[in-house]
Design a protein around this nucleic acid. Sequence first.
DNA 1: TGATAATCGAGACGGTACGTCGCGTCTTCAG
DNA 2: CTGAAGACGCGACGTACCGTCTCGATTATCA
Lengths: 191, 191, 191, 191
Amino acid sequence: MSRQPTSNRRSEQSRQAILTAAAGLCAEVGYAATTVEGIAARAGVGKQTIYRWWPSKAAVLLEHMERVREAQAGFPDTGDLRADLLAQTSAVQALFGGDLGAVWRGLLIAAQSEDVAAAGVRALLEQAISDAKERLARAREAGELRPDADLDMAVEIIYGPLYHAWLLRARPLPEAYMKEVLALVFEGLAG
Amino acid sequence: MSRQPTSNRRSEQSRQAILTAAAGLCAEVGYAATTVEGIAARAGVGKQTIYRWWPSKAAVLLEHMERVREAQAGFPDTGDLRADLLAQTSAVQALFGGDLGAVWRGLLIAAQSEDVAAAGVRALLEQAISDAKERLARAREAGELRPDADLDMAVEIIYGPLYHAWLLRARPLPEAYMKEVLALVFEGLAG
Amino acid sequence: MSRQPTSNRRSEQSRQAILTAAAGLCAEVGYAATTVEGIAARAGVGKQTIYRWWPSKAAVLLEHMERVREAQAGFPDTGDLRADLLAQTSAVQALFGGDLGAVWRGLLIAAQSEDVAAAGVRALLEQAISDAKERLARAREAGELRPDADLDMAVEIIYGPLYHAWLLRARPLPEAYMKEVLALVFEGLAG
Amino acid sequence: MSRQPTSNRRSEQSRQAILTAAAGLCAEVGYAATTVEGIAARAGVGKQTIYRWWPSKAAVLLEHMERVREAQAGFPDTGDLRADLLAQTSAVQALFGGDLGAVWRGLLIAAQSEDVAAAGVRALLEQAISDAKERLARAREAGELRPDADLDMAVEIIYGPLYHAWLLRARPLPEAYMKEVLALVFEGLAG
DNA sequence: TGATAATCGAGACGGTACGTCGCGTCTTCAG
DNA sequence: CTGAAGACGCGACGTACCGTCTCGATTATCA
C-alpha cells in the first residue's frame, strides 16, 4: 500500500502505531466513525505521516489486513475436502466475530465507493478465492466434487451463505453454522 | 419512513422529487457521493424539507426501495419450487444490475454504520426472506426440499452466492448464473 | 468588506462577536499569532462564518478599523492650524498606544503581503491623508502654510515622524512628542 | 546573527548560497511567501543547514542586510549638512526601490512579531540613527541646526516622511523627493 | 373570504473532518 | 563525520457537508 515500496527513511515505529490504532478504532467505534485525525491522535502521529504513506484510511486498514493474512497458513489440505472446508470456513466465521471482522467489514464498505479500497479488497478476496479454488480443484480430481462443478460458483456457494448471514443479516450464528451449511450444499437441498 | 405518515399539508410533489433525485444521484455518483445538499439541489427543494420528513439520506433511499417493493408481486408459486426460485432470483439479479441495484448497495453500506438504515434494511431484507421461507416451507411440505432443512439457512444458501458475486466480488454474471447455482445447490456439490 | 453589502439573513450578533474577538486577540497576542481558528473559537462561531463574509483575518480587522473610523469626528478645524494638528496627531498617538494600535500595526503588516489588506489599508490611509490635506489646503489659503507647500509631502512630514517612532523604532514617546515635532517642522530645523 | 560566529567546519559556500537565495526569494515573491524550505531548495542545501546557523528566515535576511551595511561607507561629512543629508537619504531612497528594499521591508514586518528579528532590526536601525545623530550633532555645533533641536526627533523628521511614503503609502516617489522634504523641514512648513 | 398556521425554498449558522502546507526537529546515508 | 535529503510531530489553513436554525413567501384549511 505504501507509495514507495520500502523507503529506508520511513519510521517503522510510526507505521506499526498507525496500523494498530486504525484497527483498534475500527473495532471500537466502527469504520464510519474512524477518522484519519482519530487514527493519528491515537497513534501519537501527525496526520501528514499517514497521508505521506497511505492515500486514505481504507488503505491503512488494507495494509493491516494484508499483514494479518501474510502471517496465516494457506488453505488446509488433509485429503478430506469437507473437513478442510469446515476448518477453514469456521476459522473465517470466528474471525468475522472478532476485531478483524470489524476491519474487514469496514473495507467491504469502503470498496463500494473508493477505487483504492476496491482494488485492495478485490486482491485480498481473489487471493483467498484462488486458494479455495485450488483446493477444490484437487478435490474435484479426487472425485469429492462433481466433475462439472464451476469452481468460482462453488466458492460462492460455500462462502456466500456465511457472508449473507454475517454481513447482511448480521444475525448471531451457531458455532456449527458452517457444518450444517456444508452438509446441505454437499448433499443438496433436495435431499 | 416519514415521521408523520400522512400530513395533509405535505407537498407530494416535493416528496416525489426528493425520492427521485436521491435514487438518481445514488445511481449516478454512488452512495458516498450522494449528499443531502445534493439531493435538495437536484430536487429543487430546501434541505429542511428533507430533514422534516426523513432523518437521513439513507431513510430517503429506504422509502424509495419500499415503494418499489410495494409495487411488486409477492413470491411466485407455480407449484414448481426450482422454477419459482429461478424466476425470483433472476429478477433480483437483473435488478442488482440496474439503478435500483446502486440504491440497494448504498443502503447495505449505510446499514453498517447507521441504526436507522440498519433497521430499515433489516426490515426489507427479513420481509423478503420471510416470503422466501414461506414458499420454501410449502415446498418442504410437498417434498421438494429435505424435510430437515433449516429454512433460514436454505435462503442464505440460495441468495448468498448471488450477493457474494454481486456485492463483494462485483464480477459480471452470466444471465444463467442463478440457474446453475440452483442446480448445484439442489443436487449437491458432491454430485 | 462584506461580499454582499447587507444580506438580511446575516447574523449581526456573529458579526459583532467576530470583530470584537479579532481585535481582542490582535491586541493580546499580536497579529501573527491571531489565527482565523482562534477568532472563531473566541467568538463562539464556526470558521465558515468568517470565511463566508471575509476573505482573510486582515479583512476582519479592516472592517473593525473602518467601523471605529466611522464613529469618529472628522479633522478638527478651529481656525488655528497648529492647534488642530496637535489635537489630531496627539489623538492618533494615543490611539497607537491602545488596542487599536495593535490592530492597525497588524494591518500595516498584512498590507505588505496581501492585496486585500493593501487595498483596505490604502483606502483608510488615503482617507485620513485626504482629510488632513483638506485642512492643510484651507490653512495654506489662510497663510498659515507656505504657499508653495506640497500637501502630500506636508502630511508625510507631519505624520512620518510619529510612524517612524511608533512603528519602526517602537520607542516610548513623551506625551508632548507631537507638540515638539510640530514646533520643529513648522519653524524649521535650521531655526 | 550566526550562533557560532566562526566555526571552522562551516561551509562558506553554503552560507553564501543561503544568503543569496533568501534575498533573491524575498525580492521575487515577497517576505511572506519566502519559506525556509524554499530558501533551502534554491540554495541547494538541507533545511538543517539553515537552522544550524540561523534561528529563522528573518535572521538570514538580517545577516544579509548586515553584510551589505558593512560594505558601505559611513555617514558623509563634507561640512554641508543639507548636502550630506540629501546624499545619504537619496541613497536610502534608491535602495528602497531595489531588491534590498524588499529585504528590508520583510525585516520590518518580521520585527513586528519575532523577537530575534526585532532585536536585529533595532540594532541596524539604531546604528543608522546613531550615525545620523553624530552628523547632526556636529552640524548643531556648527550652527546649521537649532541649538535646542532634539536629535532623535530630528532624525525622525528627516527619515519619517520617506518611510511613510515608501512603506505605508507605497507611492512612487520623484527622484527629488528628499530634496524637497529637506527644504521644507529645514526652512519650516510655515515659511 | 380573509386569518392563521404549517410548509415551502433558500441558505446562514455552529460544528467536524478533510487533505495540504510549512514549521522547527530528528534521522539516514552518501561523499 | 559533515551535510543533502527528507521524514517526523505539530498546528493552521481554507473547503465540504453535516444537521439545526431562521427567514419571508406561499398555500390550504377553518372562522
